[in-house]
């Protein structure tokens, strides 16, 4: 298809290396190889045996109802996040300060629509329709990532989102490339490859600001101050309070706990912030020799829960925007269906 060739237009940016990110991309490639190897092995039989043998469950296989439902919930939430996530960045496309940045941002937001499409398609293999999922989003029955309920107040937010939000998303999503459900694992491999470009362009954009005029530098630091804790909250509640984690781990949907992934993200960000010359807004952030990790202040989980429940700065705005786009498009979708029913091909 013509359009898919355009994904990843964010490539070609002249970038200081995002320290630690190459390892993650290597992990995606190893997951892809493992996926092919799993496909080559003979069928293992029962659901439990397939999971045990690290093979993939495919749409026609028998699976427990809770496995199916849990995956629909998770994949749909991920798809909804891509769709709602177009708004905070879309907010700056018409005001991007150079044509090159405008092109990169347009390409990135287009990738997000594309990711939403793959993910809805992956969810559809589990026996739901896109219409049902759209309805679940618009009615508020299904959620999307709370990070998108924060506002993008300055241009530097485009850089901070790329670096921190896409960075956190990659840390979360790379293990999903090994998820036991085949269509989800395959979608995630493709998505992670594109996300790594998103992170790189954000980091590069922030680097330019951090090394620019005093005003640009202030803008960059302010953006990092606002996005740091919401990014840490993207890994979800602490392990002790996570509702879906244990079963997801047993079924090899999830491979690492929320707290493990959060720690991995912090450990990656600290040296990256040093290269940027920006400060992470945590006075207690320090290397712990004994643990071999950085100690850090956890995000405010009460705030996370308030935002999840609908009381973040932009929940109402994001949902109103999505509902309006859906409602305003109704006559177009009806006309397309009416035309298709006439049996002609436009």
């Amino acid at each position: 298809m013509h359009l898919t060739g355009k994904f990843c237009n964010t490539e070609g940016v002249d970038t200081p290396a995002v320290k630690g990110a190459d390892g993650l991309l290597g992990e995606v490639e190893r997951a892809e190889a493992a996926l092919r190897a799993a496909a080559d092995r003979a069928g293992a039989g029962s659901f439990e045996a397939v999971i045990e043998a690290d093979q993939k469950i495919e749409p026609r296989d028998v699976m427990p109802e809770d496995y199916r439902k849990g995956l629909i919930r998770q994949i749909a939430q991920h798809a909804h996040s891509e769709i709602i996530g177009m708004q905070p960045e879309g907010n700056w496309i018409t005001r991007a300060p150079s044509l090159r940045r405008k092109a990169i941002l347009l390409a990135k937001v287009q990738d997000e629509a594309g990711h939403g499409l793959y993910l809805y398609a992956a969810a559809e293999t589990l026996g739901v329709t896109r219409e049902e999922l759209t309805e679940a989003l618009l009615s508020g029955r299904q959620k999307y990532s709370s990070i998108f309920n924060y506002p993008t107040l300055t241009w530097a937010d485009m850089g901070a989102i790329g670096w921190l939000v896409d960075g956190a998303a990659i840390v979360n999503q790379v293990p999903l490339c090994r998820c036991s459900y085949g269509p989800y694992a395959r979608a995630m491999i493709r998505i992670c490859k594109e996300e790594s470009f998103h992170q790189r362009q954000g980091y590069q954009s922030l680097y330019v600001l951090a090394n620019g005029s005093p005003e640009q530098r202030r803008m960059a630091q302010d953006a990092v101050n606002r996005w740091w804790y919401p990014s840490l909250a993207m890994f979800g509640p602490p392990d002790s309070e996570s509702t879906h984690s244990a079963q997801s781990m047993a079924w090899k949907i999830k491979r690492f706990s929320n707290d493990e992934l959060r720690q991995r993200f912090v450990d990656m960000c600290v040296p990256q912030a040093d290269i940027l010359g920006l400060t992470l807004p945590d006075p207690d952030l320090k290397w712990n020799e004994q643990r071999g990790h950085y100690d850090f202040t956890p995000p405010d989980f009460d705030e996370l829960m308030r935002v999840v429940k609908g009381d973040g700065p932009c929940n109402r705005q994001r949902m109103a925007h999505r509902r309006r786009a859906h409602d305003e498009g109704a006559w177009v979708r009806e006309a397309a269906a009416a035309y298709a029913a006439k049996g002609k091909t436009a």
């Binding site: 013509h2 237009n9 347009l106 629509a113 499409l117 309006r324 498009g329 177009v332």
Partner: peptide
């Protein structure tokens, strides 16, 4: 065309309109 981002009647059309905006911007540049 950038005004259409995240406002299109279908997700496929979001991809298409953004793509057309990118093409236009590319030629302009």
């Amino acid at each position: 065309l950038s005004e259409w981002v995240a406002r299109a009647p279908t997700l496929e059309e979001d991809v298409a309109l953004t793509n057309i905006a990118l093409d236009q911007l590319g030629v302009a540049r």
